[in-house]
Design a protein around this nucleic acid. Sequence first.
DNA 1: CGAACCGTGCTTTTT
DNA 2: GCACGGTTCG
Length: 809
Amino acid sequence: MTQFDESDAFEGASLSARAMSARPAPYLDGLNPAQLQAVQTVDGPVLMLAGAGTGKTRALTARIAHLMAQGKARPNEILAVTFTNKAAREMRDRVGAMMGEVAEGMPWLGTFHSVCVKLLRRHAELVGRTVPDPLLEGGSRELFLKSNFTILDTDDQNRLLRQLIVAADMDEKKWPPRMLAGIIDHWKNRAWTPDKIPAAEAQAFDGQGVALYRQYQDRLLTLNAVDFGDLLMHVIGIFQTHDDILQKYRNWFRYILVDEYQDTNVAQYLWLRLLAGGHRNICCVGDDDQSIYGWRGAEVGNILRFEKDFEGAEIIRLEQNYRSTPHILAAASAVIAGNKGRLGKTLWTEAEEGEKVRLIGHWDGDEEARWIGEEAESLQRGTRGLDPKSLDDMAILVRASHQMRAFEDRFLTIGLPYRVIGGPRFYERLEIRDAMAYFRVVVSPDDDLAFERIVNTPKRGLGDKAQQTIQVMARSNGISLLEGAKLCVATKTIGGKGGAALKELCDGFDRWRAELLDGRDHIRLAEEILDESGYTTFWQNEKTPEAPGRLENLKELVKALEGFENLQGFLEHVSLIMDNEQSQDEPMVTLMTLHGAKGLEFPVVFLPGWEDGLFPSQRSMDESGVKGLEEERRLAYVGITRAEEICTISFAANRRVYGQWQSALPSRFIDELPEAHVEVLTPPGLYGGGFGAIGMAAAQHAAMSGGVTSNLQEQAAKADVYNSPGWRRLQSNATRPLRQPSEARNLTIDATAVSAFTEGDRVFHTKFGYGEVIAIEGDKLDVEFDKAGSKKIVGRFLLPAEQAGDVPF
DNA sequence: CGAACCGTGCTTTTT
DNA sequence: GCACGGTTCG
């Protein structure tokens, strides 16, 4: 076991006071009285209740600067935690701007996870268990985590859990690994170790949850691995069982700052309380109205009862908003007012009037996307007497990521540049994870999960049977899969073609490992691994449309290695740093989820898809009732408050869901918008065109699409979520025949070469199928399609029908 | 063993 | 509508 050793415990400890006092930075300049108070109330617990756009980050970083300038703490004695790497980076940059290079000396500024990794690497050996050893009959052995542990991602986690579920003779279809992962995560968010699961929860997962959880933790120890939840939980465990260590850190971190406190879960809360327990110099910043992570264990309660937890806490409200126009602020405030149990803030602004929040209804989702695309273009050109806006200043914020597709399709068609934030992240992509698995086996030959992943990727003729043979060989000899594989080759247990391929793979790993130990340049080594293993070739031979992109990504991965000293260092960082920075060569519209938009701001914001069931999400309401609805409402609040100047909310009456047309009513949040601050753009006649009229139009709409169903009435009776305005009860989720809007309507599609067409032409479009040109206007064709969306989207060309034969589909 | 075909279930949100 | 897992066939 390692002992706590102060001499090497803290990087940057030698940073001198000189660096700090060198600059009398004007970090207090321009702060308003509330912000000043938040910065200068230095000792004891402080809760900064900061509304949206009130300069919270500014105050927080000024506070850090102040602590250092006043000599209250050296940079490395300040613990500043955020939730995202981005927020951490921003904070570091800002401190840097105020205090110069001092920010570099802040090793404890980071996300909860990254700080915990640091702590855990120091004290990993203190995490251990006595586990039964299958090789010693009835015997057991002690296992400890080692400081070079690996951090599992979701995929590894699921694979591990699947093994355990299968081993427990459970039906993995009825009891999917993802579900178990969710349950375990839920427990870890509460810092519950297997021994501490409350009886009421123990029934989870067919009564096997706790047993599987225990086995899972044992397996993790054997693999010398942790998952995300472990990072916090292990550290808490160490603090709770080793008072000397806790005391050292309590003394070391003289000031603690926490961003987005409303997002902390129980484990994070316990962790903070343990660390702040001595001096109580803790400053938490948050906004209860922006708590949108309840589903991943965040407890709004943490912020609501801060005063009780830290007696004598100073509560400072930041209420002057610097971001949005009064109309936007008023709309957001009115919506959030619908929630109960808020701490309550009254945001105000000195900004000029500006435009009202705009509301528009559309017939279907495609039309919504089309309208937003055109609106973005006209804003870019300059419209309604407004200055032209850059596409960089525009964002489309959706509730769920699948909503993005409609916009991507449309923007590709019209050639509007866009960027998607928060899609599948770089390091979560298939090819990247495969490549990393190779690296992992080279760096730690015992990494069975990684080996399993790539043993037959690319295909080497090693199917289930061969893999099983390797498993058995490894397990019965108590060795890793790689060693097991070598043994299989040596003993000819696996022969033939597969055996030869396996031998080549094993030899490869031996060779790469030798080179690694030899200290060979890691970038070269990485390239070599990917080439010699056949992985690069595999993608080169693949003729699917995404293959070139994947090769590109692999190149980028190798490039990313340049920033690290060696492969180990790279692998360590990767599991935590998951942002993919996009190149910013040309202005682009940003497309992201509402969750992803938190903390950001844009002059122009579009909020599409405000329909009941989509937003607020049906699932959220079904699972968490009023609590869920309130979280959705906070999400609406977050969305509106992202906008600086122009905020446009929209909804569609019809939308394709799972390839089926479904109709929906305007979101109940639309009813909560204050009329005085909203301009309704919807053409009169279509949806009523007025505020009170939305309800009427919705009723008409419901009547048109089949009226009340018994299914809905049952639901309505069940939960008071449904008991808001009476007409809303008309909503139905039941399947019923719907008109298929795109079939019946004329679609206006941009043509690549309009001159090739004349009216009456039969045309073929790879998305919409066959149709007929009924009008030509400027550079646009008006086409009536026979049938909507019947073929796969391969390209996006509109061609005269006689050429259509050349289009692959 | 692997390619091709068929059927099922799913979409909130993420460190 | 699509991805994924399972089954079938060569």
